[in-house]
Design a protein around this nucleic acid. Structure first.
Length: 570
RNA sequence: CGGGACAUGGCUCAGCCUGGUAGAGCACUGCGUUCGGGACGCAGGGGUCGGGGGUUCAAAUCCCCCUGUCCCGACCA
Protein backbone atom coordinates (compact mmCIF):
# COMPACT_ATOMS: atom_id res chain seq x y z
CA UNK A 1 0.00 0.00 0.00
CA UNK A 2 1.13 3.53 -0.80
CA UNK A 3 0.76 6.06 1.97
CA UNK A 4 0.02 8.79 -0.58
CA UNK A 5 -3.07 6.89 -1.74
CA UNK A 6 -4.29 5.68 1.64
CA UNK A 7 -6.99 7.34 3.75
CA UNK A 8 -4.80 7.60 6.82
CA UNK A 9 -5.64 10.91 8.51
CA UNK A 10 -3.29 11.17 11.46
CA UNK A 11 -3.71 13.88 14.07
CA UNK A 12 -0.95 15.78 15.82
CA UNK A 13 -2.91 16.48 18.95
CA UNK A 14 -5.04 14.37 21.25
CA UNK A 15 -8.71 14.86 20.40
CA UNK A 16 -10.63 16.43 23.25
CA UNK A 17 -13.21 13.64 23.33
CA UNK A 18 -10.79 10.84 24.19
CA UNK A 19 -9.80 9.87 27.70
CA UNK A 20 -8.01 6.51 27.59
CA UNK A 21 -4.84 5.86 25.65
CA UNK A 22 -6.25 3.36 23.14
CA UNK A 23 -9.06 5.75 22.23
CA UNK A 24 -6.65 8.66 21.79
CA UNK A 25 -4.24 6.62 19.69
CA UNK A 26 -6.94 5.08 17.52
CA UNK A 27 -8.24 8.56 16.71
CA UNK A 28 -4.79 10.05 16.25
CA UNK A 29 -3.58 7.23 14.02
CA UNK A 30 -6.61 7.62 11.77
CA UNK A 31 -8.03 4.20 12.62
CA UNK A 32 -11.50 5.26 13.71
CA UNK A 33 -13.84 8.24 13.53
CA UNK A 34 -16.99 8.74 15.56
CA UNK A 35 -20.39 9.01 13.90
CA UNK A 36 -22.48 9.15 17.09
CA UNK A 37 -22.07 8.19 20.74
CA UNK A 38 -20.65 4.65 20.80
CA UNK A 39 -20.84 4.31 16.98
CA UNK A 40 -17.63 4.45 14.95
CA UNK A 41 -16.45 4.23 11.39
CA UNK A 42 -13.47 1.98 10.89
CA UNK A 43 -10.92 3.44 8.46
CA UNK A 44 -8.51 1.47 6.25
CA UNK A 45 -5.71 1.15 8.81
CA UNK A 46 -8.08 -0.26 11.44
CA UNK A 47 -9.80 -2.46 8.89
CA UNK A 48 -6.52 -4.19 8.20
CA UNK A 49 -6.10 -4.87 11.92
CA UNK A 50 -9.67 -6.16 12.15
CA UNK A 51 -8.96 -8.47 9.24
CA UNK A 52 -5.83 -9.82 10.91
CA UNK A 53 -7.60 -10.50 14.21
CA UNK A 54 -10.59 -12.02 12.46
CA UNK A 55 -8.29 -14.27 10.47
CA UNK A 56 -6.69 -15.56 13.67
CA UNK A 57 -10.15 -16.14 15.13
CA UNK A 58 -11.35 -17.98 12.03
CA UNK A 59 -8.32 -20.24 11.99
CA UNK A 60 -8.69 -21.15 15.64
CA UNK A 61 -12.45 -21.61 15.45
CA UNK A 62 -12.07 -23.95 12.52
CA UNK A 63 -9.25 -25.78 14.26
CA UNK A 64 -11.65 -26.29 17.18
CA UNK A 65 -14.29 -27.67 14.86
CA UNK A 66 -16.64 -24.70 14.58
CA UNK A 67 -18.29 -23.77 11.28
CA UNK A 68 -18.76 -20.20 10.11
CA UNK A 69 -22.26 -18.88 9.42
CA UNK A 70 -23.91 -15.48 9.20
CA UNK A 71 -27.10 -14.97 11.17
CA UNK A 72 -29.48 -12.02 10.73
CA UNK A 73 -28.76 -8.79 12.58
CA UNK A 74 -32.41 -7.76 12.50
CA UNK A 75 -34.48 -10.14 14.57
CA UNK A 76 -38.23 -10.58 15.12
CA UNK A 77 -39.60 -10.21 18.64
CA UNK A 78 -41.30 -13.64 18.61
CA UNK A 79 -38.19 -15.65 19.41
CA UNK A 80 -37.17 -13.14 22.09
CA UNK A 81 -40.60 -13.52 23.66
CA UNK A 82 -40.17 -17.29 23.58
CA UNK A 83 -36.89 -17.09 25.48
CA UNK A 84 -38.34 -14.54 27.88
CA UNK A 85 -35.69 -11.97 27.07
CA UNK A 86 -38.00 -9.53 25.24
CA UNK A 87 -39.09 -8.50 28.73
CA UNK A 88 -35.80 -9.22 30.53
CA UNK A 89 -33.30 -7.44 28.33
CA UNK A 90 -34.49 -3.91 28.99
CA UNK A 91 -33.47 -0.75 27.21
CA UNK A 92 -30.18 -2.17 25.98
CA UNK A 93 -32.17 -4.00 23.31
CA UNK A 94 -32.85 -1.54 20.49
CA UNK A 95 -36.42 -2.20 19.36
CA UNK A 96 -38.36 -0.92 16.39
CA UNK A 97 -41.29 -1.81 14.18
CA UNK A 98 -41.39 -2.73 10.51
CA UNK A 99 -43.94 -1.32 8.02
CA UNK A 100 -46.46 -3.92 9.14
CA UNK A 101 -46.11 -2.77 12.73
CA UNK A 102 -44.35 -5.95 13.83
CA UNK A 103 -41.77 -5.72 16.61
CA UNK A 104 -38.12 -6.25 15.77
CA UNK A 105 -34.80 -5.62 17.45
CA UNK A 106 -31.20 -5.18 16.42
CA UNK A 107 -29.38 -8.29 17.59
CA UNK A 108 -27.25 -7.73 20.69
CA UNK A 109 -26.41 -11.46 20.72
CA UNK A 110 -27.75 -14.48 18.85
CA UNK A 111 -28.83 -17.25 21.21
CA UNK A 112 -32.46 -16.96 20.09
CA UNK A 113 -31.71 -16.90 16.37
CA UNK A 114 -29.26 -19.78 16.44
CA UNK A 115 -31.50 -21.88 18.69
CA UNK A 116 -34.40 -21.27 16.31
CA UNK A 117 -32.23 -22.44 13.43
CA UNK A 118 -31.12 -25.54 15.29
CA UNK A 119 -34.58 -26.56 16.48
CA UNK A 120 -35.71 -26.64 12.87
CA UNK A 121 -32.71 -28.55 11.52
CA UNK A 122 -31.54 -30.95 14.23
CA UNK A 123 -33.53 -34.14 14.79
CA UNK A 124 -31.06 -36.80 15.85
CA UNK A 125 -28.15 -37.33 18.23
CA UNK A 126 -26.28 -38.39 15.10
CA UNK A 127 -26.22 -34.73 13.99
CA UNK A 128 -24.47 -33.62 17.20
CA UNK A 129 -22.16 -32.21 18.38
CA UNK A 130 -22.33 -29.03 16.36
CA UNK A 131 -20.63 -25.67 16.78
CA UNK A 132 -21.51 -22.60 14.72
CA UNK A 133 -19.75 -19.26 14.80
CA UNK A 134 -20.03 -15.90 13.07
CA UNK A 135 -18.20 -12.60 13.03
CA UNK A 136 -20.75 -9.87 12.86
CA UNK A 137 -21.84 -6.43 13.98
CA UNK A 138 -23.91 -6.36 17.15
CA UNK A 139 -25.88 -3.52 18.63
CA UNK A 140 -26.40 -2.95 22.33
CA UNK A 141 -27.87 0.36 23.39
CA UNK A 142 -25.43 0.79 26.27
CA UNK A 143 -26.35 3.15 29.08
CA UNK A 144 -22.93 4.73 28.94
CA UNK A 145 -20.74 3.94 25.97
CA UNK A 146 -17.20 5.18 26.49
CA UNK A 147 -13.51 4.87 25.74
CA UNK A 148 -13.82 4.51 21.97
CA UNK A 149 -13.92 0.90 20.80
CA UNK A 150 -13.68 -0.33 24.38
CA UNK A 151 -17.39 0.06 25.07
CA UNK A 152 -19.39 0.82 21.95
CA UNK A 153 -23.03 0.47 21.14
CA UNK A 154 -22.29 -0.94 17.68
CA UNK A 155 -19.40 -3.38 17.71
CA UNK A 156 -17.98 -6.39 15.89
CA UNK A 157 -18.24 -9.63 17.79
CA UNK A 158 -17.29 -13.19 17.13
CA UNK A 159 -20.00 -15.35 18.64
CA UNK A 160 -20.08 -19.14 18.66
CA UNK A 161 -22.72 -21.58 19.85
CA UNK A 162 -22.21 -25.24 20.72
CA UNK A 163 -24.86 -27.96 20.72
CA UNK A 164 -24.34 -31.24 22.51
CA UNK A 165 -26.23 -34.33 23.63
CA UNK A 166 -25.32 -34.25 27.31
CA UNK A 167 -23.40 -32.46 30.04
CA UNK A 168 -20.16 -34.35 29.44
CA UNK A 169 -20.15 -33.61 25.74
CA UNK A 170 -21.05 -29.98 26.45
CA UNK A 171 -18.15 -29.72 28.88
CA UNK A 172 -15.88 -31.04 26.17
CA UNK A 173 -17.13 -28.37 23.75
CA UNK A 174 -16.63 -25.75 26.43
CA UNK A 175 -13.08 -26.92 27.06
CA UNK A 176 -12.29 -26.94 23.37
CA UNK A 177 -13.52 -23.34 23.02
CA UNK A 178 -11.65 -22.35 26.17
CA UNK A 179 -8.44 -23.69 24.68
CA UNK A 180 -9.14 -21.98 21.35
CA UNK A 181 -9.58 -18.68 23.20
CA UNK A 182 -6.24 -19.13 24.93
CA UNK A 183 -4.62 -19.67 21.55
CA UNK A 184 -6.39 -16.69 19.97
CA UNK A 185 -5.37 -14.20 22.63
CA UNK A 186 -1.84 -15.58 22.77
CA UNK A 187 -1.55 -15.21 19.02
CA UNK A 188 -2.77 -11.61 19.32
CA UNK A 189 0.19 -10.96 21.61
CA UNK A 190 -1.89 -10.13 24.69
CA UNK A 191 -1.12 -10.51 28.38
CA UNK A 192 -4.39 -11.91 29.72
CA UNK A 193 -6.04 -14.12 32.35
CA UNK A 194 -9.03 -16.43 32.14
CA UNK A 195 -11.20 -15.80 35.21
CA UNK A 196 -14.41 -17.24 36.63
CA UNK A 197 -17.28 -14.87 36.01
CA UNK A 198 -20.92 -14.10 36.59
CA UNK A 199 -23.22 -14.99 33.69
CA UNK A 200 -25.30 -11.78 33.61
CA UNK A 201 -28.23 -11.53 31.23
CA UNK A 202 -26.92 -14.29 28.94
CA UNK A 203 -27.66 -16.69 31.76
CA UNK A 204 -26.53 -20.27 32.19
CA UNK A 205 -24.64 -22.02 34.91
CA UNK A 206 -20.98 -21.22 34.55
CA UNK A 207 -18.65 -18.94 32.65
CA UNK A 208 -15.13 -17.69 32.20
CA UNK A 209 -14.08 -14.24 31.08
CA UNK A 210 -10.83 -13.55 29.25
CA UNK A 211 -9.33 -10.45 30.74
CA UNK A 212 -6.53 -8.44 29.17
CA UNK A 213 -4.56 -6.93 32.03
CA UNK A 214 -4.60 -3.13 31.93
CA UNK A 215 -4.96 -0.42 34.54
CA UNK A 216 -7.59 1.24 32.38
CA UNK A 217 -9.73 -1.92 32.49
CA UNK A 218 -13.28 -1.55 33.72
CA UNK A 219 -13.26 -4.85 35.61
CA UNK A 220 -11.44 -5.84 38.76
CA UNK A 221 -10.11 -9.37 39.01
CA UNK A 222 -8.48 -11.46 41.70
CA UNK A 223 -6.02 -14.26 41.17
CA UNK A 224 -4.36 -16.59 43.63
CA UNK A 225 -0.58 -16.48 43.97
CA UNK A 226 -0.47 -20.17 44.93
CA UNK A 227 -3.11 -22.02 42.90
CA UNK A 228 -4.80 -21.33 39.55
CA UNK A 229 -7.91 -19.71 41.00
CA UNK A 230 -8.82 -16.43 39.27
CA UNK A 231 -12.15 -14.66 39.19
CA UNK A 232 -13.89 -11.44 38.33
CA UNK A 233 -14.40 -9.57 41.57
CA UNK A 234 -18.14 -9.67 40.87
CA UNK A 235 -17.95 -13.43 41.09
CA UNK A 236 -15.07 -14.04 43.52
CA UNK A 237 -16.23 -16.22 46.37
CA UNK A 238 -15.34 -15.31 49.91
CA UNK A 239 -14.05 -18.27 51.87
CA UNK A 240 -16.67 -18.92 54.56
CA UNK A 241 -15.52 -18.52 58.17
CA UNK A 242 -14.74 -21.94 59.55
CA UNK A 243 -15.03 -21.32 63.26
CA UNK A 244 -18.17 -21.05 65.33
CA UNK A 245 -18.33 -18.66 68.20
CA UNK A 246 -17.11 -20.59 71.21
CA UNK A 247 -19.12 -20.95 74.42
CA UNK A 248 -16.78 -18.78 76.38
CA UNK A 249 -17.38 -15.86 74.07
CA UNK A 250 -21.09 -16.55 74.15
CA UNK A 251 -21.11 -16.37 77.91
CA UNK A 252 -19.50 -12.94 77.81
CA UNK A 253 -22.13 -11.42 75.50
CA UNK A 254 -23.79 -8.35 76.81
CA UNK A 255 -27.29 -6.91 76.72
CA UNK A 256 -28.15 -4.66 73.79
CA UNK A 257 -28.43 -0.99 74.76
CA UNK A 258 -29.52 2.22 73.05
CA UNK A 259 -27.05 5.08 72.59
CA UNK A 260 -27.72 8.52 71.18
CA UNK A 261 -25.74 9.28 67.98
CA UNK A 262 -27.11 12.65 66.88
CA UNK A 263 -26.61 13.22 63.17
CA UNK A 264 -24.15 10.31 62.88
CA UNK A 265 -25.25 8.38 59.79
CA UNK A 266 -22.33 6.89 57.93
CA UNK A 267 -20.20 4.02 59.19
CA UNK A 268 -17.30 6.41 59.55
CA UNK A 269 -19.27 8.97 61.54
CA UNK A 270 -20.76 6.40 63.88
CA UNK A 271 -17.56 4.47 64.52
CA UNK A 272 -15.57 7.68 65.09
CA UNK A 273 -18.23 8.92 67.47
CA UNK A 274 -18.35 5.65 69.43
CA UNK A 275 -14.56 5.24 69.19
CA UNK A 276 -14.74 1.74 67.71
CA UNK A 277 -13.36 0.16 64.57
CA UNK A 278 -15.68 -0.34 61.55
CA UNK A 279 -15.44 -4.13 61.96
CA UNK A 280 -17.41 -3.79 65.22
CA UNK A 281 -20.42 -2.40 63.38
CA UNK A 282 -23.05 -4.15 61.25
CA UNK A 283 -24.45 -2.17 58.31
CA UNK A 284 -28.12 -2.67 57.52
CA UNK A 285 -28.94 -1.90 53.90
CA UNK A 286 -32.50 -1.94 52.64
CA UNK A 287 -32.84 -3.21 49.07
CA UNK A 288 -35.88 -2.97 46.88
CA UNK A 289 -36.79 -5.60 44.27
CA UNK A 290 -39.72 -5.95 41.91
CA UNK A 291 -41.34 -8.16 44.56
CA UNK A 292 -40.31 -7.07 48.06
CA UNK A 293 -37.98 -5.12 50.28
CA UNK A 294 -35.15 -7.01 51.99
CA UNK A 295 -32.60 -6.05 54.60
CA UNK A 296 -28.99 -7.00 53.96
CA UNK A 297 -26.48 -7.10 56.82
CA UNK A 298 -22.73 -6.81 56.30
CA UNK A 299 -19.85 -5.88 58.55
CA UNK A 300 -19.10 -2.14 58.62
CA UNK A 301 -15.83 -2.44 56.71
CA UNK A 302 -17.33 -4.73 54.02
CA UNK A 303 -19.24 -3.89 50.83
CA UNK A 304 -22.32 -5.67 49.52
CA UNK A 305 -21.74 -7.49 46.21
CA UNK A 306 -25.01 -6.76 44.46
CA UNK A 307 -24.39 -9.45 41.85
CA UNK A 308 -24.24 -12.11 44.54
CA UNK A 309 -27.33 -10.64 46.16
CA UNK A 310 -29.20 -10.58 42.88
CA UNK A 311 -28.32 -14.21 42.16
CA UNK A 312 -29.39 -15.21 45.67
CA UNK A 313 -32.82 -13.64 45.79
CA UNK A 314 -33.93 -14.30 42.21
CA UNK A 315 -35.51 -11.06 41.03
CA UNK A 316 -35.47 -8.86 37.95
CA UNK A 317 -34.76 -5.48 39.45
CA UNK A 318 -32.68 -4.82 42.49
CA UNK A 319 -31.61 -1.49 43.86
CA UNK A 320 -30.92 0.26 47.13
CA UNK A 321 -34.21 1.47 48.58
CA UNK A 322 -35.07 5.14 48.29
CA UNK A 323 -35.54 7.35 51.35
CA UNK A 324 -39.31 6.84 51.40
CA UNK A 325 -39.11 3.07 51.52
CA UNK A 326 -36.41 3.19 54.20
CA UNK A 327 -38.58 5.38 56.40
CA UNK A 328 -41.55 3.11 55.78
CA UNK A 329 -39.73 -0.10 56.67
CA UNK A 330 -37.47 1.10 59.50
CA UNK A 331 -39.57 3.99 60.85
CA UNK A 332 -36.38 6.04 60.94
CA UNK A 333 -34.53 8.32 58.54
CA UNK A 334 -31.67 7.04 56.41
CA UNK A 335 -28.57 6.29 58.45
CA UNK A 336 -30.18 4.63 61.46
CA UNK A 337 -31.39 1.30 60.03
CA UNK A 338 -30.88 -1.81 62.12
CA UNK A 339 -32.12 -5.39 62.09
CA UNK A 340 -33.97 -5.44 65.40
CA UNK A 341 -37.70 -5.07 64.94
CA UNK A 342 -37.74 -5.24 61.14
CA UNK A 343 -40.59 -7.23 59.61
CA UNK A 344 -38.94 -7.86 56.23
CA UNK A 345 -36.57 -10.65 55.21
CA UNK A 346 -33.11 -10.27 56.72
CA UNK A 347 -30.23 -11.71 54.70
CA UNK A 348 -26.88 -11.69 56.41
CA UNK A 349 -23.35 -12.01 55.18
CA UNK A 350 -21.39 -14.96 56.59
CA UNK A 351 -18.86 -12.69 58.25
CA UNK A 352 -21.53 -11.30 60.57
CA UNK A 353 -22.01 -14.78 62.05
CA UNK A 354 -18.61 -14.37 63.72
CA UNK A 355 -19.46 -11.14 65.47
CA UNK A 356 -20.67 -10.42 68.97
CA UNK A 357 -21.49 -7.29 70.95
CA UNK A 358 -21.66 -5.22 67.78
CA UNK A 359 -23.23 -1.91 66.85
CA UNK A 360 -26.31 -1.48 64.62
CA UNK A 361 -28.75 1.26 63.78
CA UNK A 362 -31.60 1.74 66.24
CA UNK A 363 -34.46 2.21 63.77
CA UNK A 364 -35.05 5.52 65.48
CA UNK A 365 -33.71 8.97 64.59
CA UNK A 366 -30.26 9.74 66.10
CA UNK A 367 -30.08 6.32 67.75
CA UNK A 368 -27.81 3.31 67.47
CA UNK A 369 -27.65 0.11 69.51
CA UNK A 370 -24.49 -1.28 71.07
CA UNK A 371 -23.81 -4.79 72.34
CA UNK A 372 -26.18 -6.30 69.80
CA UNK A 373 -25.89 -10.07 69.29
CA UNK A 374 -27.25 -12.51 66.77
CA UNK A 375 -29.94 -13.83 69.09
CA UNK A 376 -31.46 -10.35 69.25
CA UNK A 377 -33.10 -10.60 65.79
CA UNK A 378 -34.07 -13.28 63.34
CA UNK A 379 -31.88 -13.99 60.33
CA UNK A 380 -33.66 -15.55 57.37
CA UNK A 381 -30.50 -16.61 55.68
CA UNK A 382 -26.72 -16.48 55.89
CA UNK A 383 -24.84 -16.29 52.61
CA UNK A 384 -21.73 -15.00 50.89
CA UNK A 385 -22.92 -11.52 50.02
CA UNK A 386 -19.94 -9.27 50.09
CA UNK A 387 -17.20 -8.04 47.82
CA UNK A 388 -13.96 -9.86 48.40
CA UNK A 389 -11.22 -7.77 50.04
CA UNK A 390 -7.46 -7.99 49.95
CA UNK A 391 -7.53 -9.42 53.44
CA UNK A 392 -9.46 -12.48 52.27
CA UNK A 393 -7.61 -15.70 51.44
CA UNK A 394 -8.06 -17.67 48.22
CA UNK A 395 -11.41 -19.51 48.46
CA UNK A 396 -9.84 -22.65 46.98
CA UNK A 397 -6.46 -23.05 48.65
CA UNK A 398 -6.29 -20.33 51.30
CA UNK A 399 -3.34 -18.67 49.54
CA UNK A 400 -2.74 -14.99 49.03
CA UNK A 401 -4.84 -13.18 46.42
CA UNK A 402 -3.63 -10.50 44.00
CA UNK A 403 -5.92 -7.78 42.68
CA UNK A 404 -5.61 -6.49 39.11
CA UNK A 405 -7.68 -4.63 36.56
CA UNK A 406 -8.72 -6.12 33.24
CA UNK A 407 -10.53 -5.55 29.97
CA UNK A 408 -13.04 -8.27 29.15
CA UNK A 409 -12.25 -9.34 25.59
CA UNK A 410 -13.88 -12.76 25.61
CA UNK A 411 -16.50 -14.65 27.56
CA UNK A 412 -17.40 -18.34 27.39
CA UNK A 413 -20.66 -19.64 28.91
CA UNK A 414 -22.17 -23.00 29.71
CA UNK A 415 -25.80 -22.35 28.91
CA UNK A 416 -27.20 -25.80 29.66
CA UNK A 417 -30.83 -26.09 28.53
CA UNK A 418 -31.81 -22.49 29.13
CA UNK A 419 -32.49 -21.64 25.48
CA UNK A 420 -33.10 -25.13 24.10
CA UNK A 421 -35.92 -25.71 26.59
CA UNK A 422 -37.43 -22.26 26.13
CA UNK A 423 -37.48 -22.62 22.35
CA UNK A 424 -37.94 -26.39 22.13
CA UNK A 425 -34.65 -27.39 20.54
CA UNK A 426 -34.60 -31.15 20.98
CA UNK A 427 -33.16 -34.28 19.41
CA UNK A 428 -33.90 -38.00 19.58
CA UNK A 429 -31.31 -40.01 21.49
CA UNK A 430 -30.13 -43.52 20.62
CA UNK A 431 -33.11 -45.02 22.44
CA UNK A 432 -35.57 -42.85 20.54
CA UNK A 433 -36.31 -40.49 23.45
CA UNK A 434 -36.63 -36.76 22.95
CA UNK A 435 -34.02 -34.71 24.84
CA UNK A 436 -33.19 -31.02 25.07
CA UNK A 437 -29.93 -29.98 23.46
CA UNK A 438 -27.20 -28.77 25.83
CA UNK A 439 -25.79 -25.45 24.67
CA UNK A 440 -22.80 -23.23 25.22
CA UNK A 441 -22.02 -19.79 23.85
CA UNK A 442 -18.72 -18.05 23.31
CA UNK A 443 -18.03 -14.40 22.49
CA UNK A 444 -15.05 -12.26 21.55
CA UNK A 445 -15.24 -8.49 21.16
CA UNK A 446 -13.04 -7.95 18.13
CA UNK A 447 -12.78 -4.17 18.37
CA UNK A 448 -12.29 -4.36 22.10
CA UNK A 449 -9.50 -6.87 21.60
CA UNK A 450 -7.78 -4.37 19.33
CA UNK A 451 -8.30 -1.53 21.81
CA UNK A 452 -6.94 -3.77 24.57
CA UNK A 453 -3.91 -4.65 22.46
CA UNK A 454 -3.17 -0.94 22.07
CA UNK A 455 -3.66 -0.34 25.81
CA UNK A 456 -0.94 -2.93 26.37
CA UNK A 457 1.33 -2.02 23.47
CA UNK A 458 2.18 1.65 23.13
CA UNK A 459 4.73 4.25 24.16
CA UNK A 460 4.80 8.03 24.22
CA UNK A 461 5.22 8.10 20.43
CA UNK A 462 2.23 5.93 19.57
CA UNK A 463 1.04 2.41 18.97
CA UNK A 464 3.37 -0.61 18.94
CA UNK A 465 1.37 -3.30 17.18
CA UNK A 466 2.16 -6.93 17.92
CA UNK A 467 3.32 -8.31 14.57
CA UNK A 468 0.46 -10.81 14.32
CA UNK A 469 -2.19 -8.10 14.21
CA UNK A 470 -0.21 -5.18 12.77
CA UNK A 471 -1.87 -3.51 9.76
CA UNK A 472 1.46 -3.79 7.95
CA UNK A 473 4.50 -5.77 8.95
CA UNK A 474 7.04 -3.50 7.32
CA UNK A 475 7.16 0.15 6.39
CA UNK A 476 9.49 1.51 3.74
CA UNK A 477 10.35 5.12 4.52
CA UNK A 478 12.30 7.05 1.89
CA UNK A 479 13.67 10.46 2.75
CA UNK A 480 15.53 12.74 0.39
CA UNK A 481 12.93 11.77 -2.18
CA UNK A 482 14.26 14.37 -4.57
CA UNK A 483 17.21 12.07 -5.18
CA UNK A 484 16.17 9.68 -7.89
CA UNK A 485 18.42 6.89 -6.63
CA UNK A 486 16.66 6.97 -3.24
CA UNK A 487 13.29 6.96 -4.93
CA UNK A 488 14.17 4.11 -7.26
CA UNK A 489 15.75 1.95 -4.56
CA UNK A 490 12.75 2.49 -2.26
CA UNK A 491 10.36 1.52 -5.01
CA UNK A 492 12.38 -1.56 -5.83
CA UNK A 493 12.53 -2.56 -2.18
CA UNK A 494 8.78 -2.04 -1.78
CA UNK A 495 8.03 -4.22 -4.78
CA UNK A 496 10.43 -6.97 -3.75
CA UNK A 497 9.09 -7.14 -0.19
CA UNK A 498 5.55 -7.35 -1.54
CA UNK A 499 6.64 -10.12 -3.84
CA UNK A 500 8.05 -11.93 -0.82
CA UNK A 501 4.55 -11.84 0.64
CA UNK A 502 4.96 -9.14 3.27
CA UNK A 503 2.33 -6.54 4.11
CA UNK A 504 4.25 -3.40 3.22
CA UNK A 505 3.46 0.28 3.45
CA UNK A 506 5.66 2.74 1.59
CA UNK A 507 5.59 6.36 2.71
CA UNK A 508 5.85 7.90 -0.73
CA UNK A 509 4.49 11.27 0.40
CA UNK A 510 6.40 14.43 -0.30
CA UNK A 511 6.74 15.25 3.38
CA UNK A 512 9.67 16.25 5.55
CA UNK A 513 11.55 13.46 7.36
CA UNK A 514 10.22 14.56 10.76
CA UNK A 515 6.62 14.22 9.65
CA UNK A 516 7.25 10.77 8.24
CA UNK A 517 9.09 9.52 11.32
CA UNK A 518 6.36 10.79 13.64
CA UNK A 519 3.61 9.18 11.61
CA UNK A 520 5.53 5.92 11.36
CA UNK A 521 5.88 5.76 15.13
CA UNK A 522 2.25 6.72 15.64
CA UNK A 523 0.78 3.97 13.47
CA UNK A 524 3.05 1.39 15.05
CA UNK A 525 4.34 -0.74 12.18
CA UNK A 526 6.77 -3.29 13.71
CA UNK A 527 9.64 -2.71 11.30
CA UNK A 528 10.67 0.52 9.59
CA UNK A 529 13.15 0.53 6.73
CA UNK A 530 14.61 3.98 6.12
CA UNK A 531 16.30 4.86 2.84
CA UNK A 532 18.11 8.12 2.29
CA UNK A 533 21.02 9.54 0.39
CA UNK A 534 23.21 8.35 3.28
CA UNK A 535 22.08 4.73 3.05
CA UNK A 536 22.02 4.56 -0.70
CA UNK A 537 25.65 5.53 -0.97
CA UNK A 538 26.85 2.18 0.36
CA UNK A 539 23.75 0.24 -0.60
CA UNK A 540 22.57 -0.34 2.96
CA UNK A 541 19.14 -0.08 4.52
CA UNK A 542 18.47 1.24 8.00
CA UNK A 543 16.18 -1.10 9.97
CA UNK A 544 14.41 0.26 13.03
CA UNK A 545 12.42 -1.95 15.38
CA UNK A 546 9.38 -0.06 16.60
CA UNK A 547 9.09 -1.87 19.92
CA UNK A 548 12.71 -1.68 21.07
CA UNK A 549 13.78 1.46 19.16
CA UNK A 550 16.77 -0.60 18.07
CA UNK A 551 18.40 0.69 14.86
CA UNK A 552 20.70 -1.41 12.70
CA UNK A 553 22.27 -0.94 9.29
CA UNK A 554 21.64 -3.95 7.10
CA UNK A 555 23.19 -4.99 3.83
CA UNK A 556 20.67 -5.53 1.05
CA UNK A 557 21.46 -9.22 0.87
CA UNK A 558 20.81 -9.80 4.57
CA UNK A 559 17.63 -7.77 4.71
CA UNK A 560 15.05 -10.56 4.39
CA UNK A 561 16.74 -12.61 7.09
CA UNK A 562 16.91 -9.65 9.44
CA UNK A 563 13.26 -8.73 8.86
CA UNK A 564 12.23 -12.30 9.54
CA UNK A 565 14.30 -12.36 12.71
CA UNK A 566 12.84 -9.18 14.12
CA UNK A 567 9.25 -9.94 13.14
CA UNK A 568 9.40 -13.11 15.20
CA UNK A 569 10.00 -11.46 18.50
CA UNK A 570 8.00 -8.29 18.22
C1' C B 1 -31.60 8.07 35.16
C1' G B 2 -28.68 11.41 39.10
C1' G B 3 -24.21 14.76 39.55
C1' G B 4 -20.43 17.74 36.94
C1' A B 5 -18.21 19.96 32.59
C1' C B 6 -18.14 21.42 27.65
C1' A B 7 -20.12 23.04 22.53
C1' U B 8 -16.29 29.18 18.40
C1' G B 9 -13.21 27.05 10.63
C1' G B 10 -11.13 20.01 9.53
C1' C B 11 -8.13 19.61 14.64
C1' U B 12 -6.39 21.95 19.43
C1' C B 13 -7.98 26.22 21.71
C1' A B 14 -8.36 31.92 22.97
C1' G B 15 -12.27 35.63 23.03
C1' C B 16 -17.51 35.46 27.13
C1' C B 17 -16.57 37.74 33.54
C1' U B 18 -16.93 43.77 31.82
C1' G B 19 -22.27 43.21 25.07
C1' G B 20 -19.94 47.13 20.03
C1' U B 21 -15.50 45.00 13.07
C1' A B 22 -14.93 36.80 14.90
C1' G B 23 -9.11 35.42 16.35
C1' A B 24 -4.31 32.18 17.03
C1' G B 25 -1.54 27.64 16.12
C1' C B 26 -1.91 23.32 13.26
C1' A B 27 -4.27 21.43 8.75
C1' C B 28 -5.77 22.90 3.54
C1' U B 29 -4.67 25.62 -1.80
C1' G B 30 -0.76 28.22 -4.99
C1' C B 31 4.43 29.76 -5.67
C1' G B 32 9.44 29.58 -3.94
C1' U B 33 13.18 27.80 -0.54
C1' U B 34 14.26 23.51 2.64
C1' C B 35 14.87 18.00 3.46
C1' G B 36 17.45 12.36 9.25
C1' G B 37 12.55 13.54 14.20
C1' G B 38 5.91 17.19 13.40
C1' A B 39 10.76 23.19 8.32
C1' C B 40 10.38 28.46 6.40
C1' G B 41 8.66 32.80 3.49
C1' C B 42 4.90 35.12 0.58
C1' A B 43 -0.12 34.91 -1.18
C1' G B 44 -4.97 32.60 -0.41
C1' G B 45 -9.74 29.73 0.75
C1' G B 46 -12.75 28.29 4.76
C1' G B 47 -16.78 29.94 10.64
C1' U B 48 -25.19 32.23 10.22
C1' C B 49 -19.75 31.10 17.28
C1' G B 50 -24.60 23.57 18.44
C1' G B 51 -30.26 24.94 17.70
C1' G B 52 -34.52 27.94 19.22
C1' G B 53 -36.47 31.88 22.03
C1' G B 54 -35.76 36.30 25.11
C1' U B 55 -33.29 41.05 26.99
C1' U B 56 -30.88 45.17 24.23
C1' C B 57 -29.97 50.46 19.65
C1' A B 58 -26.49 46.19 19.43
C1' A B 59 -25.49 39.20 21.66
C1' A B 60 -20.13 34.32 20.48
C1' U B 61 -20.58 37.29 25.14
C1' C B 62 -26.39 38.24 29.52
C1' C B 63 -31.20 35.08 30.58
C1' C B 64 -34.50 30.70 29.43
C1' C B 65 -35.51 26.13 26.79
C1' C B 66 -33.75 22.21 23.68
C1' U B 67 -30.00 19.10 21.41
C1' G B 68 -25.25 16.90 21.26
C1' U B 69 -20.55 15.42 23.49
C1' C B 70 -17.23 14.08 27.59
C1' C B 71 -16.35 12.66 32.82
C1' C B 72 -18.17 10.44 37.69
C1' G B 73 -22.06 7.37 39.61
C1' A B 74 -26.20 3.98 39.10
C1' C B 75 -26.68 0.10 35.43
C1' C B 76 -24.54 -3.31 32.00
C1' A B 77 -21.86 -8.45 27.88
Amino acid sequence: MRYSKMLLPTLKEDPAEAEVISHKLMLRSGMIRKLAKGIYSCLPLAQRVFNKVQQIIREEMERAGAQEVTLPGVQPSDIWKESGRWEMYGKELLRFKDRNNRDFCLGPTHEEVVTDLIRREIRSYRQLPLNLFQIQTKFRDEIRPRFGLMRCREFVMKDAYSFDVDEDAAQESYNRMFDAYIRIFERCGLDFRAVEADTGTIGGSFSHEFMVLADSGEDAIVSCDSCNYAANIEKAEVKPPDTDIDNETLSRMKEARKVLTPGKKTVEEVTDFLKIKPDRLVKTLIYETDKEAVAVLVRGDHEVNEIKLRNLIDCNDLSLAGDDLIIKTTHAPVGFSGPIGLDIRIITDNAVSQMCDFVTGGNEKDTHLINVNLGDFKVDRYADLRVITNEDPCPRCGGKLSFKRGIEVGHVFKLGKKYSEALGATYLNARGREESIIMGCYGIGVGRTIAAAIEQNHDSNGIIFPTSIAPFQVMVLPINMDKSEVRDKSEALYISLKDEGYDVLIDDRDESPGVKFKDADLIGIPIRLTLSKKTSKDDMVELKVRRTQEVIMVKKDDLLDEIQKYLQYS
